[in-house]
């Protein structure tokens, strides 16, 4: 079979583009916001700290406002991007694989066949526990980086998916 043959056949194959991807929990947005806020406060604090140190030595007040506005512009841009990117975080589970889509600037759709999964882990940070969320981590035998982690799932759902996957993984063996 060559590639043209394949084209015809692919019409009938299950299509990843037809899968209805499910958005992750809305509450995860709060976690993102909190994290971002902490980051921005840190960065802006850094700028003021720098100002304090520099001003002790020299008088470079003009520089500070440029720096500050640059940082603020960066923060606003970053904030908007992460807000828009949040909508792109979607996942789905099919019979034979797990699909996860994310990213605004670089959008990616990753699929891991269940038969290739080594183990599944469900982890919760302190904040996530507070909002009733969990992160589902899926490990394959691949090189570092080919593992999947789906953040911001409702805790119950994460647990269910984990159960389903581990059942299937163990069933295969």
């Amino acid at each position: 079979m060559n590639f043209t043959n394949l084209q015809i056949q692919t019409e009938q194959l299950p299509k990843v583009e037809d899968v209805v991807l499910k958005p992750i929990s809305k509450s995860y947005l709060k976690i993102i916001l909190l994290n971002k806020l902490a980051l921005y406060i840190g960065v802006i604090g850094l700028v003021f700290g720098l100002k304090y140190i520099i001003e002790k030595k020299e008088e470079l007040q003009l520089n500070l406002w440029y720096m500050l506005s640059a940082v603020v512009v960066f923060c606003v841009f970053n904030f908007i991007v992460s807000l828009l990117a949040f909508k792109k975080r979607k996942y789905a589970m099919r019979e034979h694989d797990v699909v996860y889509a994310k990213g605004l600037l670089v959008h990616s759709i990753t699929t891991v066949p269940i038969s290739r999964i080594q183990h599944v882990e469900e982890s919760r940070s302190w904040l996530a526990r507070h909002f009733g969320l969990a992160t589902l981590k899926i490990f394959t035998a691949g090189e570092a980086g080919s593992d999947l982690s789906i953040k911001g799932l409702p805790y119950i759902e994460a647990k269910q998916i984990k159960e389903i996957i581990s059942d299937k993984v163990n069933g295969n063996n």
Partner: peptide
Amino acid sequence: KIQEVELKQTLFQQ
């Protein structure tokens, strides 16, 4: 032997 497949597209490639 494939473990994972990923489709990548940047905003400009859309």
